[in-house]
């Protein structure tokens, strides 16, 4: 993730930075506007990138980002310090995105049943990845289901641990792992089909 303000871990040493960010949230809870702006500067781009990556609609993603910051402003006092501030913000953004999508009556891929649902297709040949260039992989990822894109985005670009991804997605870590494997398998199937069509 290359955009400015994107790194979650870069503000200082991990514990120190987190302590500073928790302090920022306390200031937000006390009505300190510039503190909210600082949180936005630190994490706004990461949140926006994750939301846009999943829902693919820029205007909607910007609405979600604004809703998220509004929710941070209102809910800052509820932050209990049980997770990193960035994790907490991404989780809020995910809920805001889900609400927005429902309001827009777009298809929402629910968590339940998605991961363990067996695919009717044959098992993927992972070797297809070895033969694919990055542009093809990126294009195929865009064609994946929203839930698969979401878990890949969180696990591979947001500098989160799998435990944090699990927290954001509100699923067990084992499910995160199996969803990641399922996402890669779906990606391989897509790449394989594209090769056959060439």
């Amino acid at each position: 993730m290359s955009a400015p303000g994107s790194s979650i871990a870069s503000v200082g040493t991990a514990a120190g930075a987190e302590s500073d960010e928790a302090h920022l949230l306390r200031r937000v809870a006390a009505g300190d506007g510039p503190a909210l702006a600082e949180l936005y500067r630190l994490h706004g781009q990461v949140v926006f990138a994750q939301v846009l990556f999943v829902i693919g609609d820029r205007a909607l993603a910007e609405e979600v980002l604004q809703d998220t910051m509004l929710a941070v402003w209102r809910q800052a006092g509820t932050f209990r310090g049980e997770s990193r501030v960035a994790t907490w913000m991404i989780a809020i953004a995910r809920r805001q995105a889900r609400d927005r999508l429902r309001r827009h009556r777009l298809e929402v891929v629910e968590d339940k049943g998605l991961v363990n649902r067996p695919s009717p297709d044959p098992g993927p040949d992972l070797v297809v990845l070895d033969r694919s260039d990055i542009a093809d992989v990126a294009a195929a990822i865009q064609g994946l289901g929203r839930s698969h894109r979401e878990v890949l985005g969180l696990a591979l670009t947001a500098e989160l641990t799998l435990a944090e991804v699990a927290e954001i997605l509100e699923i067990p870590i084992g499910t995160v792992k199996s969803r990641l494997a399922a996402a890669r398998a779906a990606l391989c199937r897509t790449l394989d089909k594209e090769r056959e069509h060439r």
Binding site: F53, A140, I141, G153, L187
Partner: peptide
């Protein structure tokens, strides 16, 4: 390789 694909997409994310 998967990570590179995801990052290529995310890197193209414009600023809000």
């Amino acid at each position: 390789i998967v990570a590179s694909g995801v990052r290529q997409l995310v890197a193209a994310t414009p600023a809000p």
